[in-house]
Write a protein that binds this DNA or RNA. Structure first.
Lengths: 222, 222
DNA sequence: GCTTTGACATAGCGATCCCTATCTGAATAG
DNA sequence: CTATTCAGATAGGGATCGCTATGTCAAAGC
């Protein structure tokens, strides 16, 4: 039984390990508190207490309240769009099953992960009000958006979509629709039923396949 | 030259008129400051000063900072969706001109009225965190959404859309897409070019017209 | 024209905020 | 075992906050 070489199994935590754990717990707590109270509304005392530590522990790990928030914004941007891309890849059929699964994902995000959308809104507001982090936000979107774009790209070519439809544009539309519907469901759940996102995606992709991008020519593919 | 009978032209303001004017100026200033600093981040002193009055004037017109914010949320909800519906009604052609006009509206809202989206986000966050105003928010959406729904409904029937496609669902999708794209353009303008919203609407409506709603049967249409 | 009213200004109170200076005790080094 | 280091706890300072008590002066009532 190997017990000490590779895995840091159950040993008493070393100094560095304990500090890393504290840091991580503080970040988790900060995500919750920032989501529920907002950046300015959340107090560092509340965050530290929610993590089970003192204010001193927080300032021993982060330079300021703003630095803590920016760290969250920079590398805890677990974009649900990436999960959407994965869900799409699991269902290669393209239209039927995939749309239903994405609908389910949207409902789960809106109803279960209640902290996600508010925290995302806080990030967005902070970025709009502090343009120096706009690039950070755009960079965080890049990876998940690229994954979604890839899935959409293969789907478009497989269905002989018109060549002038860019996968990037479609990915932007899908992501914007996702976020917009999640927010709307929090305000009026009845207006965003379970299948709405899937229906919208089906409408969107059949419309693209039919070729409705260029208003000038009226083609009719083979 | 008529000067005094009907229009309250330039006369010295009566007590009630002056108070109403002060109230209105305070609300305008509050909208700007709340949009730029957030609800908790904005101070009543800053709002009063932005309106050209003192703190006392603010508390003489509103019971508290929260009451001022709630008044904004309740009846200054000038939803841009209503303008979208009007734009759609002006262009009865249904697909071509209307989509382009809506694209222009989206760009104008995102780039020119820079306070609109942040204030809307503040309203949404406040409603999510204070469920007692969720109904107020839903009620504010009702009127503009209904207008959009009407326009969409006539468009659907005129184009012989499948009967199982509800105008309400389409209106929700269009509104969510609008809000999502406005936000995305603030983060990365290049990802939301001028025509994207119009393109998406064309895709959406041609997809609906083609009839892609029924989810149950194995697809692969004709 | 005098009195009353009320819109708005001013000053300040209590609470809370972010942050820092200082201390403590356990993990490391020798 | 002793000395050192440092993660984390504690206490408090300086600033700002929302809000109120009080004052002032012009419009409204007689």
């Amino acid at each position: 039984m190997n017990a000490e070489s590779a895995a840091p199994a159950r040993r008493r935590l070393s100094r560095a390990e304990a500090k890393a754990r504290t840091r991580s717990l503080l970040l988790d707590a900060a995500a919750r508190v920032f989501a529920r109270k907002g950046f300015t509304g959340a107090s560092v005392e509340e965050i530290a207490e929610a993590a089970g530590f003192s204010i001193g522990a927080l300032y021993s790990n982060f330079g300021s309240k703003e630095a803590l928030f920016l760290e969250l914004l920079a590398d805890r941007h677990t974009d649900r769009i990436a999960e959407a891309a994965q869900a799409l890849e699991r269902h290669p059929s393209g239209t039927g099953e995939a749309a239903a699964e994405l609908s389910r994902l949207l409902i789960a995000v809106a109803d279960k992960d209640t902290d996600f959308a508010p925290l995302q809104a806080e990030f967005w507001l902070y970025a709009v009000r502090n343009p120096e982090v706009l690039d950070t936000m755009a960079a965080n979107q890049r990876a998940p958006r690229h994954a979604l774009e890839q899935v959409i790209s293969t789907s478009l070519t497989r269905h002989d979509a018109p060549a002038d439809v860019s996968a990037e544009a479609v990915a932007t539309v899908v992501a914007a629709l996702f976020g917009g519907l999640v927010r709307q469901r929090r305000i009026d759940p009845a207006s965003v039923p379970e299948e709405l996102f899937g229906d919208a995606l089906r409408w969107l992709f059949t419309g693209i396949r039919t070729g409705a991008a260029a208003p000038s020519d009226t083609d009719d593919t083979a």
